[in-house]
Design a protein around this nucleic acid. Structure first.
Lengths: 106, 106
DNA sequence: CTAATATCTGAGCAACTGTTCAGATATTAT
DNA sequence: ATAATATCTGAACAGTTGCTCAGATATTAG
């Protein structure tokens, strides 16, 4: 016979997947990044426009975008002297939507 | 006539809501906390069991739980010398589910 | 009562994060 | 060619975070 705890132990996400899961949430868990991602959920945008929208320096936005790109959450595409960024992950949009629903009902 | 940017500017989450949104994700964006929350999504549990499940000291777990309680994500209920914790937020379960789906398809 | 168990708490510290600043690179306009 | 615009990058610095450690409190067992 197996205890209830052992049952949970089997279903519980592994330490490794816990790390990966936390990594995913960390990418969104910042005021600047979450607004960048929300903007990109609405449209593909160049860095300068993102910077204006989220009221942050272009340098800071560029740093955050390269972080998001390393996490494979956004993709970039160069057009002339602009670099357009777009969401490159279906689930991120879903996470932001659930997050916004949470704000609405609290 | 209004530009596309102005359209996005109107729809974009405000700086204040961006902060609140980031706060919500921050609460989940940690390897220890995300596993604690996943465990609590499976059952109501006392601190000592949570500590064993996530392989972290009871002190560290207690610190994390008080943080999650301050964020109104978990609730506590004392029974004898045990303190049972449980999820106190519908959306957190949803966020973890979407996060796990993300791991599965990548 | 005393010992054992369960939980909490504050201080301290090492690691991490997000920004600014200075400067590099690339593209386009004049 | 020169200037202006757009983007990127590394270093540095302040602020935050998550842990350990020591010790406090509370409940129950013997």
């Amino acid at each position: 016979m197996s205890s209830a705890i052992e049952e949970i132990e089997r279903e519980l996400v592994s330490a490794i997947d816990g790390d990966r899961l936390a990594q995913t949430f960390k990418a969104i868990a910042d005021p600047t990044r979450v607004r960048i991602l929300h903007a990109l959920a609405l449209a593909e945008l160049p860095v300068c426009d993102i910077a204006r929208l989220v009221q942050t320096s272009e340098s800071a936005v560029s740093h955050q975008l390269s972080l998001l790109r390393a996490a494979q959450i956004v993709r970039r595409r160069k057009i002339g002297r602009h670099v357009f960024y777009a969401l490159d992950d279906t689930h991120i949009r879903g996470l932001i939507e659930v997050g916004l629903a949470h704000l609405a009902h609290s």
